[in-house]
Simulated assay, not measured.
Amino acid sequence: MARGGHAASGPAPDPNALRRNRPSDKAGWRTLPAEGRSGEPPEWPLTEPTEREEDLWAELWESPQALMWEELGQALEVALAVRTLAEAERADARIDIRKMVRPYLDSLGLTVQGMLRNRWKIAPAAEQDEAPAIAGPEVPRRPGPRSRLKVVRDGDGA
């Protein structure tokens, strides 16, 4: 009798797990550079792309995951994902088209689960001299419940 479910059944691999001597871990993890892939994207492999597909295509081929797609020869898979995503973004998109997007994103490592299943990690970004863009003014912390407590001493001074 067959065991298990579909190919993605069970928890995704964890690169920080304590027990790392499983036979399935022999392949190891790939660390992708945070700066992503440089250069022009490959030639579009499908029929004439729309303007939105061209934008998505160029954007995705700058991602860190694009290095692996190039190594694995996945231009066609990326193009199909781009075409499906562009179609799913439309307001009148059919629900079955929208449901197809998530598996594409997972298989290409564009979601957290997809990154884990592909055993890809993105290296930390290089330190920058500038302050982070999300830094704002410091907000004072609210006093905690301990701040309302007072020390009460005996009348003897003890």
Rank of each mutant, 00 (worst) to 15 (best):
A86E: 03
G73M: 08
L32P: 00
R37F: 01
M68K: 05
G73V: 12
P23R: 13
K26D: 08
E62W: 06
E35G: 11
A75M: 10
E51G: 11
G73R: 10
E48Y: 13
T47S: 13
T47L: 12
W29T: 07
P49A: 00
S38H: 14
L85K: 07
W61P: 00
R52G: 06
L60A: 03
L32E: 01
D55E: 15
W69A: 04
W69R: 09
P33W: 01
P64H: 06
E43P: 07
G28R: 05
R52S: 06
A75R: 14
E48P: 09
G36T: 03
R52W: 02
N21I: 13
W29Y: 09
R30V: 14
L60C: 04
R83L: 04
P45I: 08
L67D: 00
M68A: 13
G28Q: 07
G39C: 05
A34N: 14
E70S: 13
A75D: 09
E35C: 12
P49G: 00
E70D: 14
P64D: 05
W61S: 01
T84I: 10
R37C: 00
L80D: 12
L32A: 03
E70Q: 15
A66F: 02
E59W: 08
P45L: 03
P45K: 07
E43N: 10
G73I: 10
G39W: 04
R83Y: 03
E70G: 09
E70N: 13
A86W: 02
L76N: 15
A79H: 03
L85P: 00
L32Q: 05
L76P: 04
P23D: 02
D25P: 01
M68V: 15
V82G: 00
R20N: 04
S24N: 08
A86F: 03
L67I: 15
S38C: 09
G73F: 10
W29N: 05
T31P: 06
W57Q: 02
W61Y: 06
E51R: 15
